[in-house]
C-alpha cells in the first residue's frame, strides 16, 4: 500500500517535469526564430520569476500543513511600496529597509500563524483578511506609483550581472552575448536549496509533513501542532518578504496594484508541482518546476506578441484546474483501494 502511495505522488511530479519539457520544446520549435532556443531565454524565465520561486517555497511549507496563504501577493506589494517609498521619499539606507521588510514579514506571519494555529480559524479566512490588510496598507504608505532610481546601492544590486561561462552566442549584429543571471536568481536558488534541506533533514521540516498528514496522530506523537503551524506561516511570510525584495529588484517600483494575483501563481506552482491541497505530501523541487511552467507560459504568450496577456492567467488557471482534478482522481483511486 505504501509503495503504491509513493508511486502516485512521484507520478504527479513526473507529469509536471514532462509537461515543462514538452512545453519548452514546443516553444523552441515554434519560436526558434525569436531566440527561444538560447540559454538566455531560460535564464530570463528564472530572472523574472525569482521572487515567485521564493514565495512558492514558503507556500509549499504552508500547504504541507494542510493550510494555505493567499496574503502573499498583497504582502509583496506592501514590501515593494515600503522599499520604494523608504528609499525615494524617506531617504533611508537600502540594507536597513531590507531588514525591516524581513521583520515586517515575520510579524505578519506571526499574527496569521497565531490566528490559524492557536485560535483555530480557517487559514483561508485569516490570510484573506491579511491579503486585504496588506493591500490596504500599501495604499496607506503611498497611493502613487513610486519608482526607485536614486538609491545607488539598491540600483547597483539590482543591476548586478552574474555571467555564465558557457552558452555564449553571437547575435545578428555580430556582438557576443554572454548569458547572465541577476542577484534575485541567486537568492531564490539559495532559498530553494535551504528549504529543500530543511524539509528533508530537520525536525521542523519533518513535523510539517506529520502535521499535514494527520493532525491527530501528530499530536499523539507529541508534536506541538499549534507551534508548528505558527512557524509555517511565519516562514511563508518571511520567504514572501525575501521574494518581495527579489520582486522589487525586478520591477524597481512600488504601486498599489502591483503583484495582483501573485498568490494564485504561487499556489498554482505548488499544486502543479505535486503538493497536495490536503497537506502532508509535496516537495519544493516540484514547486520549482511549477514556477518554471508558470514562467514558460507567460514567456510563450509574450513571445507570440499577438495574444492578450489575460491568456497567460487563463492558461495557468486551466492548468491549476487540471492538476486539482488529477489530484482528486488519485485520491479517489486510493480511497477505493482501501
Amino acid at each position: 500500500m505504501k509503495g503504491k502511495k509513493i508511486n502516485s505522488n512521484t507520478l504527479l511530479l513526473l507529469i509536471t517535469i514532462g509537461l515543462f519539457v514538452v512545453m519548452y520544446a514546443v516553444g523552441c520549435v515554434i519560436y526558434s526564430s525569436k531566440g527561444f532556443t538560447h540559454l538566455q531565454t531560460f535564464l530570463n524565465i528564472l530572472i523574472n520569476n525569482a521572487g515567485l520561486l521564493c514565495i512558492a517555497c514558503g507556500m509549499t511549507c504552508v500547504m504541507l500543513t494542510g493550510g494555505i496563504d493567499i496574503s502573499v501577493g498583497s504582502l509583496v506589494a506592501m514590501d515593494c511600496m515600503f522599499l520604494a517609498v523608504g528609499m525615494e521619499q524617506w531617504g533611508l539606507n537600502a540594507g536597513l529597509l531590507c531588514v525591516l521588510v524581513l521583520l515586517i514579514g515575520l510579524v505578519f506571519g506571526l499574527v496569521q500563524g497565531f490566528c490559524v494555529g492557536y485560535l483555530e480559524i480557517q487559514p483561508f479566512i485569516v490570510t484573506m483578511a491579511g491579503m486585504f490588510f496588506a493591500r490596504g496598507m500599501t495604499a496607506v504608505i503611498c497611493t502613487d506609483q513610486v519608482s526607485i532610481s536614486q538609491n545607488a546601492f539598491f540600483v547597483g544590486l539590482a543591476n548586478m550581472k552574474f555571467e555564465i561561462p558557457f552558452g555564449a552566442y553571437t547575435n545578428s549584429k555580430g556582438v557576443l552575448q554572454v548569458p547572465f543571471v541577476r542577484l534575485p536568481v541567486i537568492i531564490a536558488l539559495v532559498v530553494l536549496v535551504l528549504v529543500f534541506l530543511m524539509l528533508r533533514y530537520t525536525k521542523f521540516g519533518r513535523s510539517l509533513y506529520a502535521v499535514g498528514g494527520n493532525e491527530q496522530s501528530a499530536t499523539m506523537m507529541g508534536l506541538n501542532v499549534k507551534l508548528t503551524k505558527l512557524k509555517a506561516y511565519m516562514l511563508s511570510s518571511f520567504l514572501c518578504s525575501v521574494g518581495g525584495i527579489c520582486f522589487c529588484m525586478n520591477t524597481m517600483s512600488g504601486s498599489v496594484r502591483q503583484a495582483l494575483g501573485l498568490e494564485m501563481d504561487a499556489i498554482a506552482s505548488a499544486v502543479i508541482g505535486g503538493t497536495l491541497l490536503t497537506g502532508g505530501v509535496g516537495n519544493v523541487i516540484g514547486s520549482f518546476f511549477g514556477v518554471l511552467i508558470n514562467g514558460t507560459i507567460s514567456t510563450l504568450v509574450k513571445t507570440n506578441g499577438k495574444l492578450l496577456s489575460s491568456w497567460s492567467s487563463i492558461a495557468v488557471a486551466a492548468l491549476l484546474c487540471f492538476f486539482i482534478v488529477l489530484q482528486s482522481v488519485f485520491a479517489k483511486m486510493k480511497d477505493s483501494k482501501k
Binding site: 486585504f132 493591500r135 496598507m137
Partner: peptide
Amino acid sequence: DVAPVYKA
C-alpha cells in the same frame, strides 16, 4: 484603497 484595512 485604504478601506480594506479596516474591513480586514
